[in-house]
């Protein structure tokens, strides 16, 4: 995942998800404040629902009435719902 002048930086565009960019990445927001992530790949939110914007927090996911699984796992294993996103960021897709 190196970024060298000889090798163009790779960006993967997910149809219903974030844009994946090889890190480190600095995003300049509307407010002009730069935020940087040093992760090897950075998931940049495109749905604008993330509460950790500009980074993806999986808020783009579809919701269902019934849980697929009751599970909560290591660091937590649950196909999770969004608890306050609806109020703050509007309806999920």
């Amino acid at each position: 995942m190196r970024n060298t002048p000889e090798r163009p930086r790779r960006v993967v565009v997910e149809r219903d998800g974030p844009v994946l960019v090889e890190g480190p990445v600095t995003v300049l927001g509307d407010d002009g404040v730069p935020v940087t992530s040093h992760r090897f790949v950075v998931a940049v939110c495109t749905c604008r629902r993330s509460r950790t914007y500009p980074w993806c927090d999986t808020s783009h996911r579809r919701k269902s009435k019934k849980p697929q699984s009751e599970g909560d796992g290591p660091a937590d294993l649950c196909p999770g719902a969004d608890e306050d996103g609806a109020a703050r960021k509007g309806e999920r897709s």
Binding site: R61, R62, S64, K65, P79, A81, D82
Partner: peptide, 11 residues
């Protein structure tokens, strides 16, 4: 990838 709606019963 489908999330259940927020519910105390969900997990």
């Amino acid at each position: 990838l489908i999330e259940p709606v927020a519910d105390e019963d969900a997990g």
